[in-house]
């Protein structure tokens, strides 16, 4: 940078000293909470021992990654994380869109609000509470499903917390239960932003409600749908730790269908004390995510430029 520009910058910084000072707490926080841990990814290439600390521990190259990718876990957790996310994206999108389109048909604003607030309730509670609610249904001895519902189908009681094959369905339903209301409010906000004149013109032309839905509403909110979906795809390697840890109650036999990258990272660190392996899995996740976000953003820019992240 030429000297004159540096000087102008300094003058500017002095002039805006107070404003820059305001950002200081945030900047310090980001350094502590985000940037030092980013530097800490070197743990993935080390064999941490607490005596020598992060910086003093010996480098082991790619050994942690070798262990990770040679174990059957690497494939399992990647598959689970991605497969669940795909199911969540599709299932939640369909339900949330349906809900948003239908709530738009309710003309009484008070009633519409009431419905919205009921199905937003699951979104504001913690995953611990969700785990309790699920437990009240699936508890083997006295849960509602085994004691009341299973008999309608004439089948035997199911040991829900030890049989992994049911959990893909359970988790998809629980996730939808928690998030569809929230997503539908976002889509509904997009729908009420549509100019009413389109509908008036369509009604004069005799277009049915269904035609208005498919020919006006859906095309006009499609940028929002695309952006939301691409953002979800960009975090396809991430999973909601609480959903996969709390709701299955950390049950070992369920791991084949409930272990995701995030739960693996946690268990490797806390359960086995293998910091290097945990850091390696975390870095693997972060790097793949980083490139997915860049790719998703490129696509968003193509679809609608003002919705792109950067």
């Amino acid at each position: 940078m030429p000297a004159s520009r540096t000087r102008t910058l300094w003058r500017q910084i002095k002039k805006y000293k107070a404003l820059l000072l305001m950002t200081l707490p945030g900047v310090v926080y980001l350094i502590v909470n985000n940037y030092i841990p980013m530097y800490g990814v070197i743990l993935a290439f080390k064999n941490l021992n607490y005596v020598q600390g992060i910086w003093g521990s010996p480098f082991v190259g790619f050994d942690n990654f070798k262990f990770l990718f040679q174990s059957p876990d690497a494939f399992l957790i990647t598959r689970n994380t991605i497969a669940y996310n795909v199911a969540f994206i599709v299932f939640n999108l369909i339900l949330a869109l349906l809900t948003a389109l239908l709530i738009n048909e309710i003309k009484d604003k008070f009633v519409a609000r009431f419905y919205q607030s009921t199905f937003l309730l699951p979104h504001i509670i913690s995953m611990v509470v969700v785990a309790y609610l699920v437990y009240s249904f699936l508890n083997t001895d006295s849960g509602l499903v085994n004691r009341q519902i299973v008999k309608w189908f004439g089948t035997d009681a199911i040991s829900w917390y030890t049989e992994s094959r049911y959990w893909p369905y359970v988790l998809v339903i629980v996730n939808a239960w928690k998030n569809v209301g929230y997503l539908s409010i976002i889509y509904f906000a997009a729908i009420i932003g549509i100019d009413k004149e389109y509908y008036e013109a369509a009604t004069i032309d005799g277009a049915s409600k269904w035609r208005q839905m498919t020919r006006i509403t859906l095309p006009l909110i499609s940028p929002v749908i695309v952006v939301m979906t691409l953002l979800a795809i960009s975090s396809i390697m991430r999973s909601d730790f609480g959903l996969f840890y709390q709701v299955p109650m950390n049950s070992g036999p369920l791991l084949p269908t409930t272990n995701t990258i995030d739960t693996f990272v946690y268990r490797a660190m806390v359960g086995f004390g293998d910091i290097g392996m945990s850091a390696a899995a975390g870095l693997y996740q972060s790097v793949v995510c980083f490139f997915l976000i860049l790719a998703a953003n490129l696509l968003v820019r193509r679809v609608s430029k003002q919705d792109a992240l950067f």
């Binding site: 841990p37 980013m38 743990l43 990272v265 660190m269 850091a279 975390g282 860049l294």
Partner: peptide, 30 residues
């Protein structure tokens, strides 16, 4: 505001990349 782009990027980059749970935890504890 001077350095606005730098500050925005500094903030925004934390949404793109994270060090992962283990380094984050070890940082806070040690």
């Amino acid at each position: 505001l001077p350095l606005k782009r730098t500050l925005s990027f500094f903030l925004f980059f934390t949404m793109l990349f994270s060090g992962g749970m283990a380094p984050w935890y070890i940082t806070y504890v040690t």
